[in-house]
């Protein structure tokens, strides 16, 4: 099932449009934006983790607004209930029947702000939704509309009164990205454009949910050579075998890695995956799933650095 070159070019074109659109509100973060678009096309969920004020919410909103689709924003707080997320059945006095009131999750793009502030109960309510694209309330199951993407943000400092995401939940996010501070020039440009009005107000959608659905279909058909699959699996296997890590990447991580690589290849206009695509997606896809060993943690080696050395050490298979 080879994907036509023209189809892939349409993916690249749309991705570039979305990217440019977001770039107009977030200066100088092309790579982060590219990763976000890639995750969208790979049907994954995105976890944005960074300190306050660097544009996490701005990125998620900009991405959501660039696509003409339903967008919901859930501000996670300790008193947020699971039903606020999934929805609740209410007895309608007029019809004398229970009626389902969809929660915040019923949208194409769900922006979950400060997800680690919610109680574990609420957090886990997200689990089924994220993984299976469906909601089950009172024994009734509602399918979520495609595309469905959860963009969650979390704040790594100011941890008091927060509930860190459990490993199982972190594993459900395809990728985690950090914004990082803007570069000097980008920050000056931001001051010039953002001080008068909110640039998000001017943002127009450049595509719609239907087109994104089509693009996702194209991405799924991207060719992946055996050598590339082998490379991805040797990467995840290496994370399981290194003594520096207590927890390596799961098979779901391998799956996410290949899907992300496919989307990345498509975003770059290729109808086949290169080892370089896997390589490029390895860090955002794998880093947040790993737990360093006690020794590595004590010697202040971040999982990112450990992953970096693993990726450098695993050779790319030369034969197809």
């Amino acid at each position: 099932m080879a994907v036509e070159t023209g189809d892939v070019e349409s993916v690249a074109r749309v991705a570039a449009k979305v990217r440019d659109n977001i770039d107009s509100v977030i200066e100088g973060k092309t790579e982060v934006v590219t990763t976000a678009v890639t995750v969208l096309l790979a049907e994954g969920h995105l976890l944005i983790e960074d300190i306050p004020g660097v544009g996490k919410t701005m990125l998620s909103k900009a991405l959501a607004r660039s696509i003409d689709s339903t967008v919901r924003r859930i501000q996670f707080t300790p008193d947020l209930l699971p039903s606020d997320v999934t929805g609740v059945s209410i007895f309608n006095q007029e019809t004398r029947q229970f009626e389902f009131r969809p929660g915040g999750i019923f949208a194409n793009i769900v922006v979950g702000d400060e997800i680690n502030r919610a109680s574990p109960k609420t957090q886990s309510a997200l689990l089924e939704c994220m993984e299976e694209h469906q909601v089950t309330v009172d024994g009734n199951t509602w399918q979520l509309e495609s595309p469905f993407m959860v963009i969650a943000t979390q704040n790594p400092i100011e941890m008091e009164g927060t509930y860190a995401l459990p490993e199982a939940q972190r594993d459900r996010f395809m990728a985690r990205i950090s914004m990082g501070y803007p570069v000097h020039a980008a920050e000056i440009a931001m001051l010039a454009s953002h001080s008068s009005h909110n640039p998000l107000d001017d943002l127009e959608p450049v595509t719609d949910a239907g087109e994104i659905r089509k693009l996702i279909g194209i991405v799924n058909g991207i060719h992946t050579a055996d050598a590339v699959l082998r490379y991805a699996v040797s990467l995840t296997t290496a994370t399981r075998n290194t003594p520096d890590l207590n927890l390596g990447a799961s098979p779901r991580a391998s799956l996410h890695l290949i899907r992300a690589a496919k989307a990345y290849a498509a975003v770059h206009g290729r109808n086949y995956v290169l080892p370089d695509d896997v390589h490029a997606m390895a860090r955002p896809v794998l880093a947040h799933r790993l737990l360093p060993s006690v020794e590595a943690a004590m010697s202040s080696r971040s999982t990112g650095a450990i992953l970096e050395s693993i990726v450098a050490a695993v050779p790319v298979p030369t034969t197809a």
């Binding site: 990763t35 960074d50 985690r176 990205i177 370089d276 490029a280 390895a282 860090r283 955002p284 990726v311």
Partner: peptide, 18 residues
């Protein structure tokens, strides 16, 4: 390791906190 990624494209986002 530092030279992986090369000239043509950059690797993914820089992860400062992990």
């Amino acid at each position: 390791p530092s030279s992986i990624g090369g000239r043509r494209h950059r690797t993914g986002p820089v992860d400062q906190i992990s």
